[in-house]
Amino acid sequence: MIVKIENVTKAYNKTPVIRGVSLGIEKGERIVILGPSGCGKTTLLRMVAGFIHPDKGKLVIEGKTVADNGKCIIEPEGRQVGMVFQDLTLWPHMSSYKNIEFGLKAKKIPKTEIREQIDSILEKVQMIQFRNAYPGDLSGGQQQRIALARALVTRPKILLMDEPLSSLDTDLRGVLMREILRLQEELTITMIYVTHDREEAFSLATRIVVMKEGEIQKTGTVSQIKEWL
């Protein structure tokens, strides 16, 4: 099991937002967390990334306990995850290249290797021609492609995606969804994908986790969930 979430709770100003969630995720799975807006999906994902920490419960990644009962044991930069956010979050003062370079530089990878890896990932997301463009000059879809490249280039163990397509037009969503599938299979990466859109969940998931009001309501394969809903 690559991620183990054990009976995790989280409250904001005494209002419980996550109420005792347990979930195990196997290597290479595409987990989609599906639920209405405000049910705590983002909160759960940000806990896995390490931006916030559970009040109670335990979080294990690759056999290492990363957070335990309100204590953070491993900070985000040590968790080997990649993340694509709901908002467009490319750093506007850096070019596509520099955006992607940031994570590699932090890993202290030699310059020539960095260049190769960036070019190869840019090819993969079909954005090589926008290598030196700034986010301000890119469309929403193009920005999310670069964000995807930024998240994947460091070869993370887990890819976290928080409604990455919600800021895009409908036509674009289908295209990018297929691309995400292709990349996930090519890189055999574990993916946790958050959305409130059923169609998205059905086309992406190997397993769907349905959330409601801070709790897991149901877990199952696409066909199981389709039946249940």
Binding site: F51, P76, R79, T89, G103, K107, A147
Partner: peptide, 14 residues
Amino acid sequence: VNQDMEEAGRIYSS
């Protein structure tokens, strides 16, 4: 400042 932009960096750096 959009917090997500900082968190996108926190994934890699202190």
